[in-house]
Design a protein around this nucleic acid. Structure first.
Lengths: 384, 384
DNA sequence: TCACTTTTGCATTTTGAGATACATAAGTCA
DNA sequence: TGACTTATGTATCTCAAAATGCAAAAGTGA
């Protein structure tokens, strides 16, 4: 580094483990002892770092180990779904300190839902001081204009169209508020939680009631012009049979291979299935007809993903959402089709894997999103 | 800006026209006169900026206008095609100062082609001093690992596989050498040349012998894990009729709607066509059968692009390449299909337009690519 | 116990970047 | 012509940030 390292950059070194003692920091950054101590002092004062004196000596005075202080603050997070919502308070490492689940219809609108979230956060905070709150992160099942936090449009969440969420939250919690699409949040969570070291190019596919994707390109979320990137659900499949999708087109993968579509097809075949869990039971029981339908859905999703892989050239495709997590056969048929139908170069080192974080990815992703923001070198330096 | 502006940032202000005089720079950056003069002095000394004394007074001493000095250096550029190559020397604004075209088979390999390029640059440089050369930019018809400048793999350019180009160039021109895929270069050229102010999300589609795409996302090229992003040519179309593509799959859009495919189909229909120009003549003459085939190709390309638009949510799709540039009907049928088959949100403000730069985009894109690099605030400050 | 090593703290000095203040240039306008 | 305005140059001063050098702390090993 030609320039002198800033306090925020020193924090990044400590967080990443690149430098764990003052002497380390001096060596890595080229800064003199007083300069290092000044920066570390600031970080200690702000509670972002703590000292540990348990480091072994290497022949002289043992160093004081510096650790990122995950307990130095909290973030408030919420992962909203169409019908299920998870709310939590996390520490600065993204660990859930307290959480709660709701079955609430998001369609009741922001006037009902947001106060409920804020009341819940306040409750979950318990006797932690309000001043410990460093930021708020939310994932919502709608397209979001990220810079402002505006919910743009949504088939679900119609009552939220055009709502700018951050100011509404900041009335009670005056900290940075980040809002993103739920699938983008899952993609961030999965990337940072499980693949950060390995790659910056990841495609996260959520297969649940609907089918959607979150794209991580060169380490950050690809949003597109209106925040609508990753809408793979309405790409048509070949030989779909002419199913009319609610978007007005025919043979969208969402209308022939989503959880909703699977349930519809199984019912049409005379099965008594109400939820995805019922389908899971049939798969477990080895019901041939069900297995065949799940595999067929996988092939169709695979067909769409093969195109997406050609366009984006990710190193990992992560399959998440309750449908993908429940069905092994789905994952393997997707894998098979993608490897066959994407170009040789795009699949050369491509891995296609089920989500490693599973249901935890929502909360975790929200936390990562907001922590990345408030703990970035930029943000730390600006708030000095 | 909280931090003090650097010399490189001052150059950016002058280049973009945000600040045109020393007094301007002081106002915009909050820097004092001595600080401004110091930075401007450095830029003058390095020939990156020139003074103009023709500015009108606004009531007092007229300001000295500062202009980016496009004549302060040159970049060497080359746009390689499978059979056609354009070589040029450009000034620091990206204007072509001298150029030449070749019909050379790129398949002869780097040992033949690179020396030819370098000899040509040297010739085109004329009596300009070697020290004026600030960088080299190249576009090649292959997948490129950008960071190193390695040609990864290519159906054309097979003899170039694994070649790391920059060191070979630096043996004779010891400056930054940037190499990218030809379509990426076109995308950069089109974006920076025509859409920079409007958007950071652009999809450039080259329809020529082959079909490929370059993706600009949030202002920069999306490369993917191996540099293979944008490979839309091998996405299958529906109802393709089972055409076997040279990639081994069937119904790839490249095998049913590229320039090559169009020629093949027309010949099969008994037309005497050797090149795209022959097809253009038939279209101009209003040949119904040809027009129908061109429109059909457009629909098929549109089908693939509709998916890409859903995935990427660009604000502009630019259609380039000699086939797209020659055929109006192709563009309109693509447009029609994309607007019908992409989601409402993705097409809400989407424009689909023919390339504005046309054949010039290759050279221009190479120049922009390398100029962006060598004139960036970062690069300027680092070389102080 | 003592010599030696590594880590850290602290007072002092150094440095360098930028601000201040003054000087000057070059126009407009009455 | 002269007062005024705007733009720029320059010597000096200020100040903050970092380096230096010295001191002390806290271990190891003989």
């Amino acid at each position: 580094m030609s320039r002198h390292a800033t306090t925020g950059e020193v924090l990044a070194l400590i967080r990443s483990g690149e430098a764990v003692t003052r002497a380390d920091i001096g060596r890595v950054t080229g800064l003199s002892r007083p300069a290092v101590s000044l920066r570390v002092g600031e970080l200690l004062e702000r509670g972002l770092v703590v000292e540990r004196t348990d480091a072994p000596s290497t022949g002289g005075r043992p160093p004081v180990r510096l650790e990122f202080n995950a307990a130095g603050g909290v973030v408030l997070v919420a992962a909203l779904g169409a019908s299920r919502t998870r709310v939590a308070v996390c520490d600065l490492a993204g660990n859930e300190l307290a959480g709660r689940r709701f079955h609430i219809d998001v369609e009741q609108g922001p006037d009902v839902v947001l106060p409920l979230l804020m009341d819940t956060w306040e409750e979950l905070l318990g006797d932690r001081p309000r001043s410990a709150v460093r930021g708020v992160g939310m994932g919502v099942p709608a397209t979001v204009e990220f810079a402002e936090g505006r919910t743009e449009s949504a088939r679900v969440m119609a009552s939220w169209t055009g709502v700018v969420i951050p100011p509404l939250i900041r009335q009670r919690f005056d900290v940075p508020v980040l809002v993103d699409n739920d699938v983008n949040v899952l993609a961030v969570g999965e990337h940072r939680g499980a693949y950060r070291e390995e790659t910056g190019d990841l495609l996260f596919v959520k297969i649940s009631t609907r089918i959607g994707a979150g794209i991580v390109a060169a380490g950050s979320i690809l949003r597109g012009a209106l925040g609508a990137a990753g809408e793979i659900g309405h790409i048509p499949v070949r030989d779909g049979g002419g199913v009319l999708c609610r978007c007005g087109n025919i043979d969208c993968v969402d209308s022939v291979a989503s959880g909703t579509a699977l349930l519809r097809e199984l019912r049409a075949a005379g099965k008594d299935v109400k939820t995805i869990d019922d389908v899971t039971a049939l798969v477990r029981a080895g019901d041939a007809e069900t297995m065949a339908m799940v595999r067929e859905a996988g092939r169709r999703i695979g067909e769409v993903l093969a195109g997406a892989v050609n366009i984006l050239n990710p190193s990992v495709v992560v399959l998440g959402g309750d449908v993908a997590e429940a069905f092994g056969p789905l994952v393997s048929s997707i894998r098979e089709v993608v490897y066959r139908r994407s170009t040789a170069l795009a699949t050369r080192r491509l891995r296609i894997e089920p989500s490693r974080l599973g249901a935890a990815a929502g909360i975790s992703g929200c936390a990562v999103m907001v922590l990345d923001h408030v703990l970035s070198a930029r943000a730390v330096d600006d708030s000095l």
